[in-house]
Structure formats: C-alpha cells, structure tokens
C-alpha cells in the first residue's frame, strides 16, 4: 500500500470517527470557552499555512513563481467579495496565463 492509499483510508476513517464521536458525546463538553476558541483558531492556522506552502514552496524549497500571481488575483477577488468559484477560477486562469506565456 503506498502513501496515497494510506492517506486516503486513514483520513477517511478518522474523519468519520470524529463525526460519529461528536454525535455520541455529552453536550457539556462544548461549554468550555477556551476549547471553543481554540477550535475556531486551529482551522485558521492550518489553512493559512497550507496557502503559504502551496504558493511559496516547491519540494521543500522556497520559490516565487506564477502561483504568486494566481494567489494575488484570488486576494483581489476576495476583497471584491467575489463568490468562491470566481476566486478559484480567476487564480487558476492568471496562473495558467503566466505559466504558458511568460
């Protein structure tokens, strides 16, 4: 079994276990305000780190390339309150244009 299969199955099993255990857990677990705050902050940190790694690195090296142009357009789209598909598509189109023609 290669890394792709391990990641696919491992993630799926844990994802379901997390969902199901939530449905089977007493409700007072959620009342701790610090726990709630950490729960809101963890996705912010992880997703921001993923944006950074996917935009600025390649094979463990820091790299500035066509992806930065794509991300910049995505940021502009988000400031203009564009809907999600527009954000993704405009980033992809910009990045592809620069990759192909520069």
């Amino acid at each position: 079994m290669n890394a792709f299969w391990i990641a696919t199955i491992g993630t799926s099993v844990i994802a379901f276990a997390l969902k199901f255990s939530g449905h089977s857990m007493p409700q007072h677990w959620l009342e701790n305000p610090k726990l709630q705050r950490v729960n809101a902050l963890i996705p912010i940190a992880l997703l921001s780190a993923l944006v950074a790694v996917q935009t600025f690195t390649s094979q463990s090296k820091v790299m500035i390339d066509h992806r930065l142009a794509g991300l910049s357009v995505a940021i502009i789209a988000l400031f203009l309150k564009a809907p999600f598909p527009v954000v993704v598509l405009s980033a992809a189109a910009t990045s592809a244009a620069i990759y192909n023609w520069l």
Binding site: A7, T11, A15, L18, G22, M25, L30, I42, T57, Q59
Partner: peptide
C-alpha cells in the same frame, strides 16, 4: 508538497475536529 501520509492524515484530522463539535451540537 511531498509530506508523508502520517502528516497528511494528522493535518486533515485536525481540520476534521470541528465536525465532531458540530456533531455535539446536532445530536
């Protein structure tokens, strides 16, 4: 990005914790 299966699973699972909390709300 070249990460291992374990770090992929760990990152994905941390992001999945909030679904568990939604479960607590919805049950």
């Amino acid at each position: 990005a070249g990460g291992s299966a374990i770090s992929a699973i760990a990152t994905a699972s941390l992001l999945g914790v909030r679904n568990g909390l939604y479960g607590v709300i919805m049950a």
